[in-house]
Amino acid sequence: MSVVCVIPARFASTRYPGKPLAELRGATGESRSLIERSWRAACEVDQFDAIYVATDDDRIAEAAKAFGADVLMTSDTCRNGTERCAEALGLLGDGVEMVVNLQGDAPLTPPWFLVALIEGLRSDSQAALATPILRCDGETLAALKADRAAGRVGGTTAVCDSEKHALYFSKEVIPYTAQDYAPDAETPVFHHVGVYAYRPWALHAYPDWSVGPLETLEGLEQLRFLEAGHKVRCVEVEARGRKFWELNNPEDIPRIESMLSEMGLP
């Protein structure tokens, strides 16, 4: 039974067309595409038996093959990354223990997030899938609030129950807190890290479930599992001094490049 990483990537993003091929400059000054940096992040995880870029776009496929990635061509009817992973699983056939969806906009995902994710799903037989959450410090919380104040849809937050099963995910900053926090202080807000580990049965079933009102309003694919009554395991991970941010808007490029430079990542 294998653990397969799938990196879904599409060119025709509504908010940021061509995002997977956006260039990011690292600490050495070398520029690499977003999709290559996400693939390199996956390559740091020993637990993956195979890594694929799944796309419907020849430009992304050619770029991925050029830096050494294996590619699965999927249809242009996939409505989100989870549906693209489901189609990729169908191409791979049997013998897969779990599929890890490393979204192609998360180049700063450290390997221990992904290891913890795999272990988290294995330890929770009730869960259809697992996803990491990272407790925000004051600096990250301020950045999330600044995005919302500016009308930008930035990071996603998560709220869990006492057993770390998800209650809700939102592009708003939840739970509400009026308190001001020092940049390095812990806060009660958890940043959702947009990575998922699915059990094959759940991933196969996902495209046939109805898109509910919450998924429609928030535009968050993981809400389909909650609306269908399935448990989502939230795996709390630690930053260990690493910065984390996803590339959601063009304005995020300078922020991520600054983080790459600050952390000495090439």
Rank of each mutant, 00 (worst) to 15 (best):
A54K: 06
I256G: 03
L203C: 00
C5H: 03
V71D: 07
T187C: 09
P110I: 01
Y181Q: 06
N248R: 14
R135P: 09
G229H: 02
R79L: 12
N80Q: 09
M263A: 07
K65C: 15
L117S: 00
P175S: 02
V71C: 06
G264K: 01
S123A: 15
W112L: 14
P107S: 09
A127M: 02
L24K: 02
L226Y: 00
R255P: 02
W201H: 11
K145P: 13
G29F: 00
V100H: 00
S125N: 10
A41F: 04
Y196C: 08
I118C: 03
R240S: 13
D58W: 13
G81S: 08
E163C: 12
E139P: 06
G90R: 10
L91W: 06
W209T: 04
K65E: 15
I256C: 01
E236S: 07
S13T: 14
A9W: 01
Q103V: 14
E62H: 10
T216A: 14
A149Y: 11
C136A: 09
H191E: 10
G93S: 04
G93I: 06
E251S: 12
R37I: 03
S261V: 08
S2P: 10
P8W: 02
G155C: 10
V4T: 01
F67L: 08
D105H: 11
Y52I: 05
A12R: 12
V99Y: 04
E139I: 06
I174P: 06
L114W: 01
E251K: 08
A143G: 07
L72A: 02
F169A: 08
L129G: 07
V4P: 03
D49T: 04
T177H: 06
R135F: 07
E119V: 11
C43S: 10
A182Q: 11
G93L: 00
S123E: 13
T74W: 03
M263Q: 12
T157C: 05
T14K: 14
N249Y: 10
V53L: 08
R59W: 08
D147F: 00
G155H: 09
S123V: 06
E257F: 01
V115I: 12
Q47C: 11
A42W: 02
D180Y: 11
Q126E: 15
Q126K: 12
D76T: 09
L91A: 12
A143C: 10
G154F: 09
C85S: 05
R10N: 15
V237A: 05
G138D: 01
V53Q: 02
L92I: 01
L102N: 03
T109Q: 05
V99Q: 05
T156I: 11
I60H: 05
A86R: 03
T77Q: 14
D147K: 02
N80D: 14
E139F: 10
T187I: 07
T131C: 09
K65N: 15
G26V: 05
C43L: 11
